[in-house]
Amino acid sequence: MPGKALSLRLETSASDIVEIAALRGRARELERVALGRGVQLPALGRALAATDHLALCVRPERWLILTPPAAAGASAAVWQAVCAGLGAALDLSSGLNALELTGSVAREVLVRSCRIDLDPDAFPVGAACATIMVQVPVILVALASGVLLLTPASTARHFHEWLMSSAKTFGFMPPSHLNGAAVSDDQLS
């Protein structure tokens, strides 16, 4: 890629993550009540960003909702009330780590272990999927700014080190320390 300016940024972002899952036959109802709370639940394989949240779906009738961090379990408690009788809402804020890879070569870095087709035509902005990378589960979400990566907390360091090592091919220098930053609006858009 001579002549093309390379840029790459790897950030960990702290956000509350709630998984909501519909009981049998209750998915449409769950979608309706979520919409009533201002959250449109996306179709399978898609993510929908709004100003104050990101909702994504990589498992049938299950959604992950990312919001700026609040008190422990507070977001989940809200959704537990919403889901009552229709499904389950679980706090996964601690179970998943969110990383964001941005820049012109973000996808080039990811194809070094991601077996999913990340071509912008095949995985456009708004697409989401769950897969395995470097032997650990990863959820990928294509955002306008880059790719959001959710990975289990216990293997997050392993995955992070891998990304930094893969990115070295592109001249990426690991930062001396990692910034914990909230998911901001511009990252979600």
């Binding site: 399978l44 394989g45 990589v58 498992r59 049938p60 077996r115 999913i116 999927c129 769950a130 897969t131 395995i132």
Partner: peptide, 11 residues
Amino acid sequence: PWCGERDETEF
């Protein structure tokens, strides 16, 4: 049927 075509290693 849910995720599209994937490698055997995911299953």
